[in-house]
């Protein structure tokens, strides 16, 4: 695993890699070299993109995109991370490298509002008729939304009482 750390650091400028536990590798890289890192990892045996996560670091005003790639032969699991601006969350798609990247990007687009350029299908996946800000952002107040949307609807008893008075 340590050979992987040195290799990644030497090939890609500005890339920092550190180990987390036994079989985990966390690679932090600037936005422009993410696709190159993913391409390199795929060529060196990490065939599968497991998932794409997004973390909302609201205090830094940044989104962190986390690409989980893994190999089938080695127990090593690599997380490629990059930070993008929270006010203008635009990032190129990874569909040219991993075929299944599109669906993860579609999910993150819906839940965080990250725009993936080049992905032809960013239609809503889970939510129906959603009008508020993307729900997984930290500034989305879930409990207030629930109060306004669901709890404000009158119950049958309230409705009857209103009609009688």
């Amino acid at each position: 695993m340590n050979d992987m750390v040195d290799l990644l650091k030497s090939i890609f400028k500005g890339t920092d890699a550190r180990t987390l536990g036994e079989n985990r590798l966390s690679v932090t890289t600037p936005g422009e070299s993410v696709l190159a890192v993913l391409d390199y990892l795929k060529a060196s045996g990490f065939y599968q993109l497991k998932s794409i996560s997004c973390v909302d670091w609201i205090d830094d005003n940044e989104f962190e995109l986390v690409y989980h790639v893994a190999s089938l032969e080695r127990p090593l699991h690599i997380m490629v991370k990059t930070r993008i601006d929270r006010d203008k969350p635009v990032f190129p798609t990874a569909m040219s490298i991993f075929k299944n990247a599109g669906i993860f990007e579609r999910e993150m687009h819906e839940l965080f509002g990250v725009m993936f350029e080049g992905n032809p299908d960013l239609n809503p996946l889970f939510l129906d008729n959603w009008k508020d800000i993307p729900p997984f952002r930290k500034d989305f107040d879930m409990r207030k939304y629930v109060k306004d949307t669901y709890d404000s609807i009158p119950s049958f008893e309230e409705y009857k009482w209103q009609k009688e008075n």
């Binding site: 987390l20 536990g21 985990r24 966390s26 497991k50 998932s51 996560s53 986390v66 989980h68 699991h77 997380m79």
Partner: peptide
């Protein structure tokens, strides 16, 4: 900190970041 763990569920890899 952060971590990624995975287990083999009945249907395949189940992971949590």
């Amino acid at each position: 900190g952060e971590t990624y763990v995975r287990v083999e569920s009945a249907r395949g890899e189940f992971g949590l970041y």
